[in-house]
Simulated scan of single mutants.
Amino acid sequence: MESNTPRIAVIYATAEGSTRDIAEFIADDFRARGADVELSDIEHAPDLSHFRAIVLGSAVHNRDLLPAATTFVRTHREALRNTDVWMFSVGLGPALRGPIGRWIGGKVPQKIAALVASVAPWDYRAFAGHYERAGVSLQARTLYGLMGGRRYGDLRDWDAIRTWSSMIAQSLALPQPQSTTIAP
Rank of each mutant, 00 (worst) to 15 (best):
W86D: 06
P46F: 15
M87Y: 09
D123N: 14
D123I: 06
R63G: 00
L56V: 01
V116I: 14
A140V: 11
G145M: 09
S58Y: 10
F88P: 00
T180F: 12
S118E: 14
G98K: 08
V116L: 12
I104S: 04
R150Q: 08
R52V: 08
R102V: 02
V90A: 07
V119G: 06
W164V: 05
M147K: 06
D64Y: 09
W122M: 12
I100P: 01
V116P: 02
R77Y: 03
H50S: 12
R97T: 11
V116A: 10
P175N: 05
T71H: 13
G148L: 10
W122V: 06
P121C: 13
R141A: 08
G145E: 03
R63V: 03
V119F: 14
P109N: 14
Y124Q: 01
A53H: 09
D159Q: 14
Y124E: 05
T180G: 14
Q139H: 02
G101S: 09
Q176P: 13
G98E: 07
P99Q: 04
K107G: 01
A45G: 07
P99H: 11
Y144M: 14
Y152P: 00
R141N: 09
S171W: 11
G93I: 02
A117C: 02
K111S: 13
P46Y: 13
R63C: 06
L80G: 05
V90E: 08
R156M: 11
L172W: 11
P99G: 03
A169I: 06
P67K: 08
T71E: 12
Q110E: 13
E78I: 05
D159T: 10
W164P: 02
W103R: 07
V136N: 03
Q178S: 07
Q139W: 08
R77N: 13
Q176I: 07
Y131F: 15
A173H: 14
A95E: 08
D154K: 11
G106E: 04
L143Q: 07
A114L: 13
W158C: 04
G153T: 02
I100R: 08
T142Y: 10
